[in-house]
Design a protein around this nucleic acid. Structure first.
Lengths: 133, 133
DNA sequence: CATGAATGCGTGTATATACCCGCATTGGGC
DNA sequence: GCCCAATGCGGGTATATACACGCATTCATG
């Protein structure tokens, strides 16, 4: 069987490699794919709490908190106390929205490259397989 | 198209999720899948330098150095200066070999579970697709 | 309305991962 | 045999990620 290559390690390698594609494309904007993905989610969900954002991106709340703090320092995201004073609600700054607009075509192009390399059927198949894990 | 879900983010999610399967199985031994994978490689390649090990697992040398340092503290791996005095060569301690023997069936069982869930054909397909990325 | 449970966060700690810099050692050209 | 380039490493820094703990706030129940 395939009892030599660990599925987990192969997945990690693939994730690192593919991440680097997106990171390179977004590098001119000074953000990486993880940050860009967060910006997209914040844009769509704003004003959004850390907990809700974490649930949406399936990352630990503390992870999201630390990652968004970097985006705040870059002045792409701003946070304010929510109506519920326990919450911090996040939204994009104008600069954040601008970056999203600039980055979208770059993101699209990486996405298209990957789909072109794999083919449409294989792309769908890959997504299905990943979801089935 | 699939222009909503980022291939990269999906891959990362899948990698985290699958990693957790292996991690849970190996938890009784006190190591995670990344460490277990390193132990396997060191066992196969010993005595091996950090640079060679990094090339084998496709990780940065400094990453491998830091990860193996943890394994050294656990006394699963030992390091010694190589013939070339710039190199540090790694090998498993008896405890490391014992852990590898104990862990192998646990690793196999996660591997089997995944393959059973996907099916043999899909497993192969997934590996091919990951390699094509 | 008062109090204990639940919720939301920040921080500490640990691993994973990369890149860069500086130091030590080695090796090749002369 | 000497010197400079190449190689190997450690440590600094930065992000990614999770879990556990403690604090503040809210809410539900009596």
């Amino acid at each position: 069987m395939s009892h030599d290559s660990c599925h987990c390690i192969l997945l990690r390698k693939a994730a690192r490699k593919v991440s680097s594609y997106y990171d390179e494309a977004l590098a001119p904007l000074g953000v990486n794919i993880g940050q860009f993905s967060l910006l997209r989610h914040i844009n769509r969900m704003a004003p959004v709490s850390l907990t809700a954002l974490g649930a949406a991106v399936e990352l630990d709340r503390s992870t999201v908190g630390r990652n968004t703090k970097v985006l705040e320092k870059m002045e792409l995201v701003e946070s304010a106390p929510g109506d519920d004073h326990r919450e911090m609600v996040l939204s994009l700054t104008p600069a954040g929205r601008a970056l999203l607009a600039e980055g979208s075509p770059l993101w699209d192009s990486v996405q298209d490259d990957i789909e072109a390399r794999l083919g449409a059927d294989n792309t769908r198949q890959l997504q299905d397989l990943l979801a089935a894990l």
